[in-house]
């Protein structure tokens, strides 16, 4: 599962590996993975459509394991579409489809025999607007694990997940209360906790703090550092300072003209992207010349 080693040697032909293996491999979560680094992802020539409208075109990048990768760019450049292709949530919209390949570790999540339901468990997602279920705090966290067949100690899993999301202390006496009764920041951390409860390898975050107050935002950013020790994190954000603060790598999405599909304009170490990017548009954006 150590992605960084095999990355350089990968050739296109290996991607079309025997897909019969793919199914079996996905059916078991990484075993003996206590403290083991998670998988990275490689995106190759990804394009996404809503019906006949092309939203993003020909995106290729590597997402390093156990690192935080930020996706920035002006509104409407396909950042949200892109991240939703990473867990195949994009195709839930009727008429939407994606082309290209996205590798999780060594398997293509868009492979012919790959089950999107399973993918979404292994690649979790936190949304822009907190959307906890209208159930108790406990059930919110437990539900995902339950339907995915968790047979262990559920109480322990719930507590562990809430601790990782830095929410346990605030809700440990309110586990039976409705998740909708929490504050916005707490609800978002609840959503993080439920994502962690299914033990994914990658966590996708679509502007997770944009609807929250600064204190909650800070709390969530603080968790990021710990999360990346055990997960691979991809975060879409409008907040450039946030991207500069918390990410290791940054990708900049851009469109030249209205109606064009979004493109990955530049992708590099965060430090380089924010101090000395290669392309003019990137520099203009990160320095705030347009937004």
């Amino acid at each position: 599962m150590d992605y960084e080693k095999t990355g350089e040697e990968r050739r296109v032909s290996e991607i079309s590996r025997d897909h019969r293996d793919t199914r079996e491999r996905f059916e078991e979560p990484p075993s003996g993975t206590q403290g083991t680094p998670a998988s990275g992802m490689r995106v190759e020539n990804l394009s996404a459509y809503y019906g006949s409208f092309k939203a993003i075109t020909d995106v290729s990048l590597d997402i390093q394991a156990n690192k935080v990768t930020a996706i920035i760019g002006p509104s409407g450049c396909g950042k949200s579409t892109f991240i939703r292709c990473l867990n195949r949530l994009h195709e839930v919209v009727p008429g939407a489809r994606a082309e290209g390949s996205v590798m999780l570790g060594e398997q293509n999540i868009y492979g012919k025999n790959t089950d999107p339901v399973n993918i979404r468990r292994r690649i979790g997602m936190v949304f822009q607007k907190p959307n906890p279920f209208s159930k108790s705090v406990y059930e919110n966290v437990a539900w995902g694990a339950r339907i995915n067949g968790y047979r262990g100690d559920m109480d322990e899993l719930v507590e562990r997940s809430l601790r990782q999301a830095a929410l346990w202390d605030e809700v440990k006496d309110r586990l039976k209360e409705s998740g909708l009764g929490l504050s916005g920041g707490q609800q978002q951390r609840l959503c993080i906790a439920r994502t962690l409860a299914v033990e994914p390898e990658v966590i996708l975050m679509d502007e997770p703090a944009s609807a929250l107050d600064p204190v909650s935002t800070q709390k969530i950013e603080d968790t990021m550092d710990e999360l990346k020790q055990s997960y691979t994190v991809v975060i879409v954000t409008h907040n450039m300072q946030q991207a500069a603060r918390i990410s290791d790598y940054t990708g900049f999405f851009y469109i030249e003209n209205m109606g064009d599909p979004g493109r990955l304009w530049e992708f590099d170490d965060t430090e380089k992207m924010f101090s000395n990017p290669d392309r003019k548009e990137t520099e203009d954006y990160v320095t705030g010349r347009f937004g």
Binding site: N87, L89, V92, V117, N118, I119, R120, R121, R122, G124, M125, F127, N131, P132, F133, W143, G144, I147, N148, C191, R194, T195, V198
Partner: peptide, 9 residues
């Protein structure tokens, strides 16, 4: 979306 994102059918 929240449900699907957790790997639910």
């Amino acid at each position: 979306e929240g449900g699907f994102a957790l790997g639910a059918t």
